[in-house]
């Protein structure tokens, strides 16, 4: 499978990572290396082998449905992200976390 720098830009955008043109080229080389490794693995005959969804062969443990989390809003809101506009204060108000306006 061949990728282009366009693909790299698209993948980066989906992950909200900024990639410059020169970084895109080097990233492309690294990713192609990984894909090559996957191609090598895909050459193995896996007929009759059930696909794994986890590397450990154990099953999910379940939790009882009991409230055990206290209200730590004050502590969490002290370390909330700032708005990135030079202010060093946590962007919270009236118990809400603040973000740039989301237009519906």
């Amino acid at each position: 499978m061949a990728l282009t720098t366009e693909d790299i830009k698209k993948i980066a955008h989906l992950a909200r990572i900024e990639v410059s043109d020169s970084d895109a080229t080097s990233t492309l080389t690294k990713l192609m290396g990984i894909l090559g490794l996957i191609e090598q693995m895909q050459a193995v005959d896996t007929t009759g082998i059930e696909p794994m969804s986890h590397s450990q062969d154990v099953v999910q443990r379940l939790r009882e449905d009991e409230v055990c989390k206290p209200n730590l809003r004050e502590a969490f809101q002290k370390i909330a992200p700032t708005l990135g506009n030079g202010s060093h204060e946590a962007a919270v108000d009236q118990g809400l976390y603040l973000v740039p306006k989301v237009i519906e």
Binding site: A91, D93, Q94, G95, L96, Y97, L98, V99, P100, K101, V102, E104
Partner: peptide
Amino acid sequence: KSVHGAVEGMSGIDL
């Protein structure tokens, strides 16, 4: 949930 209008020019997030 996003809360609009609680704070001018911003959206509030209630998790």
